[in-house]
Amino acid sequence: MYNIIDSKYERGAILKVLTKNENICVECHQCEDACSVAFFKAADREKSSVRVDRKKTGEINLTTCTQCGVCIDVCPVQAISRDKNGIVRINKKECVGCFMCVAACPEDAMMYNKDLIEPFKCVSCGICTQECPTGAIKIEDI
């Protein structure tokens, strides 16, 4: 009854998603630089929507957004919705900066940075994948 998924996107249609294969990541961090340069004009991994780090267990951990839409439902002002291609996007004008979406994201892919009063996330643009030397991250149609 309260489904707010943007009507222009039909469930089941093709959706471009950034997928990951941690086994072949070489931790060059090129993707982080590419993303942050593209969106924030500075190579600063803290401003990248894709992240490379290690799990507590020592294994490589790639953080990517699956476009699952969990964040859509927690936003109190409906600032998050799917665009016509199904990509989950934040309308910064509407956002009141509560960061509930940051905590609700099951992938930790909704990002916070101290210089910004709104969160930011991956929009499946694929810029990062062009820099990845091994194909550890890819844009795939699902």
């Binding site: 309260y2 439902d73 927690v74 936003c75 109190p76 002002v77 009141v96 509560c98 960061f99 509930m100 905590a103 609700a104």
Partner: peptide, 12 residues
């Protein structure tokens, strides 16, 4: 169920 039922923004 399942709605962001805060009485002010940011009440998770």
């Amino acid at each position: 169920q399942g709605l962001p039922d805060g009485c002010w923004f940011g009440c998770s």
